[in-house]
Lab assay of single mutants.
Amino acid sequence: DTFTFTLDGIEVRLHGASEELIKTIEELLKRDIRWEELEKWIREWEK
Rank of each mutant, 00 (worst) to 15 (best):
W35F: 14
L38N: 00
W41V: 15
L28I: 06
K47H: 14
I22A: 03
L21W: 06
I42L: 13
K30I: 09
A17I: 13
F5P: 01
F3G: 00
T4V: 13
L29P: 00
L7H: 09
L7D: 01
I22F: 03
E26G: 08
R31H: 12
F3V: 04
E36T: 14
E37G: 04
K40E: 12
L38Q: 00
E20T: 09
I22C: 04
F3E: 01
I33P: 09
D32P: 09
L28W: 10
T4A: 09
G9E: 06
E19P: 14
R13I: 15
E37S: 07
E26L: 15
I22D: 00
E36C: 07
E39R: 06
L21P: 00
I42Q: 01
D8G: 07
E27C: 11
R34N: 10
E19I: 14
E26V: 13
I33D: 04
K40W: 09
F3C: 03
F5H: 01
S18E: 06
E44C: 04
V12F: 13
H15E: 15
T2R: 05
K30S: 11
L7N: 01
A17N: 03
F5Q: 00
K40A: 13
R43F: 08
A17P: 07
V12D: 01
E39N: 07
E11Q: 07
K40I: 12
E44R: 01
E37N: 06
T2L: 11
H15W: 09
K47G: 14
D1T: 13
E20K: 09
W45T: 04
E37D: 11
I33H: 03
I33W: 07
R31G: 15
L38P: 00
K47M: 15
R34D: 08
E46R: 02
E27T: 12
W45Q: 05
G9K: 02
E37R: 04
E19N: 12
E39Q: 10
A17K: 04
E20V: 09
L21G: 01
E36N: 11
I25F: 03
I22E: 02
E19Q: 13
W35L: 11
T24N: 15
L38A: 03
E19W: 13
R34V: 09
T6Q: 10
R34M: 09
R13L: 08
I42H: 01
V12R: 04
R13W: 08
W45M: 05
G16I: 05
R34Y: 06
K40N: 10
F3R: 01
I33F: 05
D1W: 09
E37P: 02
D8H: 06
I22M: 06
I10E: 08
D8W: 03
E19T: 14
L14S: 00
R31L: 10
K30E: 09
H15M: 09
W41E: 07
H15T: 13
R43T: 11
T24H: 14
S18H: 06
E37L: 07
T24E: 15
E44V: 03
L28S: 03
E36K: 12
F5E: 00
T24I: 13
E19C: 10
K40L: 11
S18M: 03
T2H: 10
L38E: 00
L21R: 03
L29A: 02
V12Q: 02
E39F: 10
E20G: 09
T2A: 10
S18L: 03
W45D: 02
L29H: 01
W35G: 03
D1H: 14
K47C: 06
R43N: 12
T4W: 07
K40P: 12
G9R: 01
I10T: 07
I22S: 02
T2Q: 07
G9L: 06
E39T: 05
I25T: 01
R34T: 14
E36Y: 08
W45I: 07
R13E: 15
D8S: 04
E26S: 11
L21V: 13
E19F: 13
K47S: 15
I10F: 14
H15P: 13
D8Q: 06
W35D: 01
F3W: 12
W45L: 06
